[in-house]
Amino acid sequence: MKEKSYKRSKQISNIIVHAVLAVLAFVWVFPVLWVVMTSFWAEKGSYVSTFFPKSFTLDNYIKLFTDTTLLNFPKMFLNTLIIAVFSCLLSTFLLLSVSYCLSRMKFKMRKPYMNMAMVLGLFPGFMSMIAVYFILKAVGLTEGNLIRVALVFCYSGGAAIGFQVAKGFFDTTPYAIDEAAMLDGCTRWQIFTKITLPLSKPIVIYTVLTSFISPWVDFIFAKVICRANADQYTVAIGLWRMLEKEYIDNWYTCFAAGAVLISIPIALLFLKMQKYYVNGTGGAVKG
């Protein structure tokens, strides 16, 4: 009798939990589905009265890549990809190096640096955007193709501030391993590349992911630095332009198509790196 009621209450709570989860899943997935659906709309216009398109089409995607005289999406996509890849490499390197130094080396400025970084990290990055613009202009990076270089610097320049998580991870690797390597004649650089990094795959992956995504989706810096240089626009600016009053009626469905497309590289990165990502919190050395 008792067992039965236990089973029953278990069943009821399962039903409730699943119902709640279903609702939440719907709430989270719905906007994504909606954008995907909109990207296949054959009808024009920005006002959508039904969830499912009345007729499906791939024209929106085709238009994005062929109708390039007004808004050159392929070029923007390429710009963004170049910028994101280079800032990802640069900022991953910077961030991991700084974290490693702060975790392994004891020097006088260590504590003050960490405090300073903490305080600076409290301010949103775009507070400095006008100053950053004028500095880049003074260096001569705000015209032509150099804008891409400028954007890479913008996105990776502040990377070292966000060392906390990676440093915490490196701290979990016993120092004894480093000492053993040193006894075998390893230099600091060799310890870093041959021992610490391989042991810290999850955090490396995490860093790569986050430092790829932030330039990939950034709007503010790209807008401030690109200004009127349409050939240097990134995807975020292009998508924003599609929603302006002159374009929205013709470009709304293309906007949705563009939104779907930009999520693809991120989704691929996540899928590819997920297995490392999941055991990220496990700590460095096992067994």
Partner: peptide, 18 residues
């Protein structure tokens, strides 16, 4: 350069010299 009429003012006033 590309700056439509609605946004040109903001872009120009950000840095007239450039």
């Amino acid at each position: 350069g590309v700056a439509d009429e609605a946004t040109a003012a903001n872009t120009v006033s950000q840095d007239p010299s450039a």
